[in-house]
Computed example of a mutant assay.
Amino acid sequence: MRLLLIHADIIAYETLSGTKMAETDIVAKDAMQDALVAFCAVESADETDPEDIVAQTAAEILAVAAKVGAVRVMIYPYAHLSNDLARPAAAVSVLKEVTRVLAADSSLEVRRAPFGYYKKFTVTCKGHPLSELSRHLVPLKRGTAADTCLPSQ
């Protein structure tokens, strides 16, 4: 998972047209003020352990939101952060689950921009020291030697 996190005065988007992988039943136009925008690219490696990548992504977004004092989060699919993307169905599933996990935290208002659309958007970054961050999260590959090796005691 590649993340670009922007603490914004405003994030606004409007869908223009769908691609062949566009999801249905969407919010075509939305805006949030004073929000943490999480631009997300789900990568092919994330498909090896989607539960872990969802947990890591949600935890990272929650931690940054707490640090910057954001109570609103916009999950924004942004394939342009990677050249090794997950399959569209897998990416949508991961993004929906990240949104669900974050929304379960009653202190946050969470929304998600639609996947598979060309969108025009506006972001106004707040400009403080933590207002622009990037993260590269890698899923645990359960059952691999790296996961099962323990340090000598």
Rank of each mutant, 00 (worst) to 15 (best):
E109T: 14
A41P: 10
V54T: 15
G127H: 00
I11F: 05
L36R: 06
L4R: 06
K119T: 10
R87M: 09
C149L: 00
V123A: 02
T24M: 07
C40A: 11
A146C: 10
A103F: 02
D25H: 10
T57W: 05
A66K: 09
L81Q: 07
P77A: 00
R100H: 11
L36H: 06
F39H: 11
T124W: 00
A65V: 11
L108R: 03
T144V: 10
I61Y: 07
H80F: 11
S152H: 05
Y78H: 10
T19P: 04
A79C: 07
Y78Q: 05
V98C: 07
P129R: 00
C40N: 04
D49E: 13
T48K: 03
V68A: 11
L4P: 03
E14R: 13
T19E: 04
S106V: 11
V138G: 05
V42D: 15
P50N: 08
N83P: 01
A145K: 06
M21Q: 12
T144K: 00
A55Q: 12
A63G: 09
V94W: 08
S106L: 10
L150K: 00
H128K: 09
R135H: 11
P50R: 00
P77L: 01
P139A: 03
Q33L: 02
K141N: 13
V110E: 09
I10A: 04
K119H: 05
D30M: 03
N83H: 03
E51W: 03
P50C: 06
H7A: 07
A104S: 10
L102I: 04
D34P: 02
A63Q: 14
Y13H: 13
A63P: 07
S131Y: 01
D30S: 15
S93R: 02
E51D: 15
P151K: 01
A8N: 03
V101H: 10
A113F: 07
S152T: 07
A90H: 06
I26Y: 04
I11M: 04
C40K: 02
T15G: 13
A22F: 08
C125R: 00
A103E: 02
I75P: 01
M21G: 13
Y78V: 13
V71Q: 06
T124L: 08
T19W: 02
A91G: 14
K29C: 15
L133K: 12
R72C: 14
D34Q: 00
S44T: 12
M21S: 12
D105A: 14
C40W: 03
L85W: 01
A79W: 01
A90D: 10
T57L: 08
L102T: 02
V98S: 03
H128Q: 13
M32Q: 12
D105Q: 11
S44L: 09
I26A: 04
T57D: 12
A70N: 04
M21D: 14
R111F: 06
H136Q: 14
V101A: 14
V71W: 00
L150V: 05
R2V: 10
A12L: 07
A146F: 04
T15V: 15
I61D: 11
K141W: 04
S131H: 05
L95M: 15
A12R: 02
M32N: 09
E43Y: 06
G143D: 01
A59W: 10
A103Q: 08
L130Y: 08
